[in-house]
Amino acid sequence: MIEVLINSGLQLMLLLLVAPLLSGIIKTLKARLQTRRGPGVLQSYRDIFKLLRKGMVVPETASWIFSAAPYVVFCTATLVGLMIPMTTTHAPLSLFGGVLAVIGLLALGRFFLALGGLDTGSSFGGLGSSREMTISAIAEPAMMLAIFTVALGANSTNLSEMAKIAVTQSWRFLAPSQMLAFAALFIVLIAETGRIPVDNPATHLELTMIHEAMVLEYSGPYLALIEWGSSIKQLVLMTLLVNTFFPFGLSSDWTLRTVGVGLAVYLAKMILLACMVVLVETANAKLRLFRVPELLMVAFILGALALISTFLF
């Protein structure tokens, strides 16, 4: 019990602190790749801090749902973060929710954010909510298939169990099924975190925005919670991807050395994945909304192939 609490506390700190950093790193890397200087890796912290110190304007038309959404987004993302293994194979709350709970909780956050978008009565919010729910709905089966492939290998939907199995077979990621599942989940990651070519996090153009349209009416501390929650969600999904397929360096005991190595390797892996995301973002143009289903269909087919190859090879 004490161990769970300490572990939760440590991982909570890690989540809250690393998530904005990762967003900052992605922004800076992207800027550098486009030969801009970029705002610096600490910009996301500054943004959140600034928003927390701003007055808040709430639309006259909004109800309590509008106010509830930021809390739900933030709490679900953070709780999910405690269910996935980050630097050790022991995720603090992994007994209380496996991968299905992770997907479910993220969906709960999305559900409320979409309601918040529609609550204002602004067309932008409705547009964002409609697109967000549509894209997440067609991303879901691909995500489930890819995760099932891994879960079937580990015989468990419990993320710590999955990580423990994965640690014992370090070279498993070379198996065709794992590579296919990774590819599928990577596409889903792009869609779920709202990055190019699915959504552009830097745009406020009504033709293209999805996530930004939903949160258009939020300001001040509410917006800070949403931004923070979204960056935690991004961190969580990236961690999930990295640690299920490349579990190197996950510490399985509590000595200082293994924990230190675990942390260092974890950060290195995340930066590497961030580089991949940035490369994809820079090399591609944003897709038209109605081309996105085709991309996600590719992910679904990759997931199905991954599943079939688990018992072919």
């Binding site: 110190r53 701003k54 007055g55 808040m56 304007v57 709430v58 639309p59 006259e60 038309t61 909004a62 204002t120 009565g121 602004s122 932008f124 258009l216 009416e217 001040g220």
Partner: peptide
């Protein structure tokens, strides 16, 4: 500290 007010939608 910084207040909350309601305003029209954009």
């Amino acid at each position: 500290r910084f207040g909350r007010k309601s305003g029209p939608v954009w």
